[in-house]
Structures are given as structure tokens and as C-alpha cells.
């Protein structure tokens, strides 16, 4: 059998064109859901038909922050919690790009919590993918803002007494245009969700519930990654009409998955444009100004951007 598998290895993996193969194998633990999340993300981009040249991925710090380093896109590894401000600037400076923030719950909701709610409030045209593993994995299992009530962690040896954040509820309440929650087990639905978000205008938030076998499961008797995934399978229900503010994640309740919010609101850039237009129209011709700015933008784009093929 060993010889048989050796023969079948000749073909390269279909994702090798978008992964940085010099960094493989990745540092994520056995049974971690982050690799599945990356696969779903790449498949989702493929499905949405977004050009890889026009996609930028921004990550913060943490286990999930390594995603930007493993993908052969325009990737940025920013300081802790500041992935969303960076992505906002990137999107406003170059509006042709599809900007995706791929980060963890500690990065986006603990240290960068304010940035997230304000980006959602402004409805900046970025996609935020938050991988929620309920704990700070890389630093050794400290209490995160998403650790469920009663769960054990390094800094909560008698169980956690703090109420956790409900991530989808917070994003929906802050005014995100698209809010969804899936687990890493729902690989195909997650792919569809990411494809929808990539094509959608406005602030899109996707929460991916991921197993953390090394830290979270070890402290909470959760078993291996496979056991956690099976537990997700028994606990997960799909309800697209659920109210996102009323479905918190606890240790043993059901994980309500689905696309909870999908609506169109004017984005930040559209609001800026309409605001400037009303002020400038008195003095100059708006259409002419727009065409001039587009010409300049086009020239700089040709000069500084190298294509993927070249």
C-alpha cells in the first residue's frame, strides 16, 4: 500500500499556486480547524471569481494571524488588533481591491474590539473573517472575550466568571451588512458564505467556530480535534432567520449557524462621495472631476502594479 500511495503523489496539490509552499507544513496543531478555514476561504474566492491580483488579505496577531503569511496573495501581517484600521486604509486608497481581514477572536474582539464596531458602524467595504476558538491559543490558553461561562483556561483555573461576547450579535448590532456564523465542519456552506461576502458591498462579518484541541479542549476535557468537531456536529443547527443577538455560544447549548443579516446599506465611500459632491458641485463640474481622477488612478496603477503572471 505504501508503494501505491507513493505513486499517486506525483501531482501537486491544487492549492499550491496560492499557498506559500516554502512555509509548509504550517505550525497549526494536529486537529486545528484553521487549515480547513483557509481551504474554504480560497475555494470561496475561486467561486466568487475574484482575481488573486486584486485581493489583499490582512491579519493581526495570533494563530489565525499566520494565515496572511501562508497565502500567496497581497498579504499583510499587522500589529495586534490593528488589522481593521489597516484594511480600512487599504480599501479607501485602492478601491478596486477586495480586502479581507482574516483574524482571530482575541485579535478582533479583545484588543481590536473598538476598531471592529466602528468599521461596522461606518460600513467600510471590507470582509472580516473571524476564527473563534474560544481562547488565546498561541500564548498558552488565557481567558479570551469569547471564553464561555464556566470554561477553564490558564487564567481561570476555577472556571470563567465573565460573560462572553456574542460575536455575530455584536457585529449585527453595530450595523454590518452581512453577518454569518459557521463551524469549520460546515465546509461547503462556509465556502458559499465567503463567496457571497467577497461579492457583496459593505462590511461583511463571518464567524467561524473552530476547534482548538491543544489548549481549549485540553483544559475542558474536550478530547481531540475530531471529538470537538463531532461535538460541533451534534450541537450545530442551521437557522437563517435567527435573531443574531439572541444566540450566544455557551459550553453545551446549540450552535446556531446561518446567514443572519444580508442587507444593503450605503458604504463609507459612497457616503463620502455624496458628501463631497454636494459641497463641490457649486464650484466645479463633478463628472469632469471624477473622470480626471480616474485617469490619474489608472496611470499609477499601470506603473506600480506587476501582474501575477509577469
Amino acid at each position: 500500500m505504501a508503494n501505491n500511495t507513493a505513486q499517486l503523489q506525483e501531482k501537486p496539490h491544487p492549492m499550491e499556486d496560492i499557498l506559500r509552499m516554502d512555509r509548509m507544513p504550517h505550525i497549526w496543531c494536529s486537529g486545528c480547524g484553521l487549515g480547513s478555514a483557509v481551504t474554504s476561504f480560497v475555494e470561496g474566492l475561486k467561486k466568487a471569481g475574484v482575481s488573486y491580483d486584486k485581493t489583499a488579505i490582512v491579519s493581526g496577531i495570533g494563530c489565525t494571524g499566520r494565515v496572511a503569511g501562508y497565502l500567496r496573495l497581497d498579504s499583510y501581517h499587522t500589529t495586534h488588533g490593528r488589522a481593521i484600521p489597516f484594511a480600512t486604509g487599504l480599501k479607501l486608497a485602492n478601491r478596486d481591491l477586495t480586502v479581507v481581514v482574516f483574524s482571530g477572536d482575541g485579535d478582533l474582539f479583545a484588543i481590536g474590539g473598538n476598531h471592529l464596531i466602528h468599521a461596522a458602524r461606518r460600513n467600510v467595504d471590507i470582509n472580516v473573517i473571524c476564527v473563534n476558538n474560544f481562547i488565546y491559543g498561541m500564548t498558552g490558553g488565557q481567558n479570551a472575550p469569547t471564553t464561555p461561562l464556566g470554561a477553564y483556561s490558564s487564567t481561570a483555573p476555577f472556571g470563567n466568571y465573565e460573560m462572553p461576547f456574542n460575536l455575530v450579535g455584536l457585529a449585527a448590532a453595530s450595523g454590518a451588512s452581512y453577518v454569518a456564523r459557521w463551524t469549520t465542519m460546515h465546509a461547503r456552506r462556509l465556502t458559499d458564505s465567503i463567496a457571497t461576502a467577497a461579492k457583496k458591498k459593505g462590511f461583511c462579518f463571518i464567524e467561524i467556530v473552530s476547534p482548538c484541541p491543544t489548549v481549549f479542549a485540553r483544559k475542558n476535557k474536550g478530547g481531540t480535534g475530531l471529538d470537538m468537531l463531532k461535538e460541533f456536529q451534534t450541537r450545530a443547527i442551521i437557522d437563517h432567520d435567527a435573531d443574531p443577538t439572541k444566540i450566544p455560544l455557551n459550553m453545551d447549548n446549540e450552535i446556531v449557524c446561518g446567514e443572519f443579516v444580508n442587507e444593503d446599506r450605503p458604504t463609507f465611500w459612497e457616503n463620502v462621495q455624496s458628501g463631497i459632491k454636494s459641497r463641490v458641485e457649486k464650484f466645479t463640474d463633478w463628472e469632469e472631476m471624477q473622470s480626471n481622477s480616474k485617469k490619474i488612478h489608472h496611470k499609477t496603477f499601470l506603473k506600480y502594479t506587476a501582474s501575477r503572471e509577469s
Binding site: M1, N4, T5, K11, H13, P14, M15, L19, M24, P25, H26, W28, G31, C32, G33, L34, G35, S36, T39, S40, E43, T184, M185, A187, R188, T191
Partner: peptide
């Protein structure tokens, strides 16, 4: 290891769910 090679129907779920990009 592949135990029943004739049973595979090319659904691709193993490829989607593999966290280590080790199967396709």
C-alpha cells in the same frame, strides 16, 4: 490509506476538510 479505492465518488469533502493540505 485508501482502503476502498473504487468507492470514491469525487465529492471532495476530504480535500475541503483537511487542515494540512495533505489530501486531494
Amino acid at each position: 490509506v485508501i482502503a476502498k479505492p473504487d468507492m470514491c465518488t469525487f465529492c471532495g469533502l476530504c480535500e475541503m476538510i483537511c487542515p494540512d493540505f495533505a489530501i486531494f
